[in-house]
Amino acid sequence: MIVVNTETVPGFVVVAVKGMVQGNTVRAKHAGRDIAAGFKNLVGGELKGYTELLTESRRQAVERMMAQAQQLGANAIVNVRFTTSAVTAGAAELYAYGTAVVLQEPPA
């Protein structure tokens, strides 16, 4: 499945629009990671645990979005957007949404 955040896909034409698809997730890290982040806040530097948290949440949200697109019979998602929201400290909600379409290579 082709997933892009542009409105069109170079080299393909959109033959059918299947509608908006979405996926979201709220994830948190275990308390140990939060405590480690508290210490990191004294000395600065990358919070690997929270970077991981964003990566995992984003993957899960995109997977859910792709599953929905598959169910609609689409073979691509265009114009994908992400938003995040604050639910509580140390947790992240990630919401991915895009338009499910059917792509085809144009006749040469």
Binding site: I2, V4, N41, L42, T51, L54, R58, V80
Partner: peptide, 25 residues
């Protein structure tokens, strides 16, 4: 919209990068 797209390249794909950087005291 992507510019100067090569015709025989791999299909375009979505990429995401994350970084969380902490402040110090």
């Amino acid at each position: 919209t992507a510019m100067d797209v090569s015709v025989n390249g791999p299909p375009p794909t979505l990429l995401i990068g994350e970084a969380v950087i902490a402040s110090d005291y």
